[in-house]
Design a protein around this nucleic acid. Structure first.
Lengths: 219, 219
DNA sequence: GTCTATAGAGGGATAGAC
DNA sequence: GTCTATCCCTCTATAGAC
C-alpha cells in the first residue's frame, strides 16, 4: 500500500465525513489528500471504487477498534452506552458518518450497495455476538430474535447518525431514551422465573398472531 | 398551484425515490415530469428549492394519510405494526425514502437540514402523541422519556429505510425483531404493581448513574 | 407560462511527458 | 508513480423568443 494510496483513502473519508457524498469528487478528494487528481484513477480506477475501498478500510479499522469494548460489555445498558460513545467519537473522527453516506448513495448504485452491506454486516456481527452472550439464560431471550435485533440496532444507529446532522439535540435525546429503555430488560431479568413464564406465554401468543420466521429449532 | 408546478414536484419525488439524490438533477426531474428543464427555475428558483418544497408537500400528505391510523393505535405492538405497514407502502410510493435522501444530503447543506428537520418533526409529533396516550398509567412509563423515544423511533425508521436499499431481507428481519420486542412491554404491563415498583426503583438507580435531562417535575 | 439555446462551472476520465 | 493538460460530459442557471 503506497503512501499516496493511503492519503487518498484518508482524503476520501475526510471529504465524505465533512462535506457529504454530493460534494465528494475526484477534485475535492485530491485537494483534501494534497494529491494529484489523476492519481485517483491510477490507483483506484474510479472515484466510486475509491469511496468503496475507503469505506471498507475504515469499517475494518473502526470495528477492530471497538471489538475489545464490545467484548467487555456485560449488559444491554452497556451495549447502548457504547452506542453513545460511538456516536460521540465517530461523528467527529469516524466511520459511521461515512457509512451513512455510502448507504444513502447506494439506493441506485449496486456497487455502493454491496460495500454498504458488507460494512454494516461487520457491525452486525459484533452486535450479534454481544446479544447472544447477554441473553444466554435471560428470561427475555424468547422475545428477542437476535439476528433481527442486531440488524435493527445497526440500522437505527445509522439513522440516528444522519438525524444528528439535522438536529443534534434530538439525536442526543434519542440515544439517551433508548439507553433508558434497557431498564425494562433489567427489571425483567430481576423478576426471574415469574418474568420467564410471562414472556414465554406472551411470545407464543404473538407468534400465533403474526406468523413469521421462527428461531431455529421451532416446530 | 399550477398543474406544471405539481408535475415538477411529483417528478422530483419520483426521481429522488427511484434514483436517489446523486441522480436527481434539473434534467432528470424535468424528464420524469415531462416538463421543460427551465421551468424548474421559473417555478422554484433552484433545484434545491424544488427538492425542499417536494419534501415538505409529500411529508404533509403522508403524515396526514397516517394520522387516523396513528389515532387508532392501542398498543406499542400496533405502533410498531404501523411501522411495518409504512415500510411496505412508503418504500414503493412514499415519502420516507425521499426524506432519507434529503437528510443524507443535509450534512453540508443548511437548507436541506432545515427541511429535513421540519419533516422529521412532523412524524415525531405523531409518534409522541401515540406514546403519551399508550403510556398513560402504564408501569413502564417512568422508564420512557417520551420525546426522546419518539425521536429515536423516527430516526431508527429512517435508518431501516436506508438499510433496506442495501439488504431488503435484513430490513425485514429488523422490523420484525423490533415488533417482537413489544412483548416485553406487554409482559410488564401484565405484571402491574409488581412491575411498577421494580421499574421505579431501577429508574432511580439508572438516573443516579447517568445524570442527564430529567422529566419535568423531577428535583 | 413555456420553449430553445447557451453560457459557465465542475465533474470523470485519459494521454503523454517526466 | 506522479504531474500537466485536456477532452467531453452533465450540471445549474439565465437570456430571450414565443
Amino acid at each position: 500500500m503506497t503512501e499516496t494510496r493511503q492519503r487518498l483513502i484518508d482524503g476520501a473519508l475526510e471529504t465524505l465525513r465533512d462535506k457529504g457524498m454530493a460534494a465528494t469528487s475526484a477534485r475535492t478528494i485530491a485537494a483534501a489528500a494534497s494529491a494529484n487528481q489523476g492519481l485517483i484513477f491510477y490507483h483506484f480506477g474510479s472515484v466510486d471504487q475509491l469511496i468503496i475501498e475507503a469505506c471498507r478500510v475504515s469499517t475494518e479499522q473502526r470495528v477492530q477498534h471497538y471489538r475489545q469494548r464490545f467484548a467487555a460489555v456485560g449488559s444491554l445498558r452497556e451495549l447502548l452506552g457504547i452506542g453513545r460513545e460511538l456516536h460521540a467519537t465517530e461523528l467527529a473522527a469516524g466511520n459511521v458518518t461515512v457509512l451513512a453516506q455510502v448507504v444513502a448513495g447506494a439506493q441506485q448504485n449496486e456497487a455502493f450497495a454491496a460495500a454498504g452491506r458488507e460494512a454494516i454486516e461487520q457491525w452486525i456481527a459484533e452486535i450479534e455476538r454481544v446479544l447472544r452472550r447477554l441473553l444466554r439464560g435471560s428470561p427475555i431471550a424468547p422475545a428477542v430474535d437476535q439476528p433481527g435485533l442486531a440488524r435493527g440496532i445497526a440500522a437505527a444507529f445509522i439513522g440516528i447518525e444522519l438525524y444528528d446532522g439535522v438536529d443534534a439535540g434530538g439525536a442526543q435525546a434519542a440515544l439517551a431514551a433508548l439507553e433508558q429503555l434497557s431498564v425494562l430488560a433489567e427489571v425483567l431479568d430481576d423478576l426471574g422465573p415469574v418474568a420467564r413464564r410471562a414472556v414465554r406465554s406472551r411470545v407464543r401468543k404473538a407468534q400465533a398472531r403474526t406468523p413469521g420466521p421462527r428461531p431455529a429449532g421451532a416446530p
